[in-house]
Design a protein around this nucleic acid. Sequence first.
RNA 1: GGUGAGGUAGCCAAGUGGUAAGGCCGGAGUCUGCAAAACUCCUAUACGCGGGUUCGAUUCCCGCCCUCACCUCCA
Length: 479
Amino acid sequence: MAVSLYDTLTRSVQEIRPEDGKTLRFYCCGPTVYGPAHIGNLRTFLLQDVFRRTVEISGLPVNHVRNITDVDDKTIRESNNKGVPLKEFTREWTERFHRDSHALNMLAPTAEPAATGHIRQQIELIECLIDRGHAYASKSGSVYFRVSSFEDYGRLSRLREREITTGRATPDDDEPIDADEYERDSGADFALWKAHKKEDGDVFWDSPWGRGRPGWHLECSAMSMAFLGETFDLHGGGVDLVFPHHENEIAQSEACTCKPFARHWFHCAHLMVHGEKMSKSLGNLYTLDDIQAKGYGPMDLRYVLTSAHYRQQLNFTIDSLNAAKNALKRLRKKADALIETAGITREAFYDPEAIIKNSPEDAGVFRTAWQELIDDLNTPGALGEVFRTLGRIEKASIDADGNKQLAFSFAKIIHALGLDLHPDQEKTEAPEEIRKLAEERWQAKKRKDFARADALREELNEAGWSVLDRKDGYELEAG
RNA sequence: GGUGAGGUAGCCAAGUGGUAAGGCCGGAGUCUGCAAAACUCCUAUACGCGGGUUCGAUUCCCGCCCUCACCUCCA
């Protein structure tokens, strides 16, 4: 059974099947590496990851390509501000992005091409477009795509009737028109190649039109086609990319190849924070580090970000992290119980091959959750069904073989959602004096000097540590 | 102004033409010197407003109110 998604192109839910019948070719617009990714960025990548995991655990391989935008206005500006060479600057943020992605249990893409690594392909694409009369070079050495030459322009974003020739957000916008506005034949035309400017410093490449750098939209066309072919199965990104980015990608690509570009489009809604748009000025732009500094784990964030449908704006709140933490704890308990009664290892529980081998195609008892997932990637629906199913199987006694199947069926859903129920718990080691106090309290407790024990507990609490008594011992926990 | 999405219990969030999943919170109990954890159980007459269609609408249609997003480089 194929996984379906809401396809922006047809505005309807479509089964996403590989054109070649073997491998799903999936391209995602990756991050612009000029700073840490915020939770909004991460949500999009996370849901793409859930989609890929769902497809793969259903038995279909995915060729997942996600680019790194390592040259554009922002990367150049910020690296200049920092006085760091562009390459070094973007490498650092790329590494940070990898760290965050890994922490969030996102599978690494099959390939992760960088824009600066594919200048030649981009120049070739421009040459093709000029040859075919879809692009023109300006006096200054920039190259623009002639939107009017591409009849289908606006199909994806449905803005054929829109006013797209002004180049301004609103008619009463008094902003002065950008200098290169005068270079274009039409305000709707967009840059394929940007002539070198002083601010660009040593960031430039030689081209048939002189020194310059590629325009933003171009890299995705060049790299997706280089890695996945002129036509591929699915292309994804945040909703904001529908126009102009994806619209322009289609125009550039199809004008050159005369073949359909992406067969389906997968867009993720934005998230809001505490009911407001996430923005720097509101001070509500969270990164993974911010979340962790508040005492939550990456999995808590992952749970929150998958707890709303991808086409729905998610209202992120700190409170929701608490809910996630507790819900995850319950899932972990259930997983432990299922793993134990099934007599399988924890490794097997997280091993995709073991899961595919040992779980029914429809996920057996968990079929309702699986159904939710493959039907337009309804992650909150799936989560709801998981809990409901868990509640129901509580009472039913099942034979050993059934238990095994049950555990792997559960594992299938958990794997698709990408939830690591057993993250390494990095326990902060308590300082010497804290440990001493805790030990003292334990001794006091043992000789039933409860007044003393409670006083010490209070003291430890004030120092920011809680004592959790166990059967025959105790643990210290920060916070 | 144009286009699109949405308004479901204290919070988050699915879903449906026949009176509505799930999670969190909350409450009770077991356990525990205390605290926590864990386990069990429980709770709420929640579907923005007004019309219409229908035997019946939260679900379809119309109008209104409100929120949010996009409209040239923001996932």
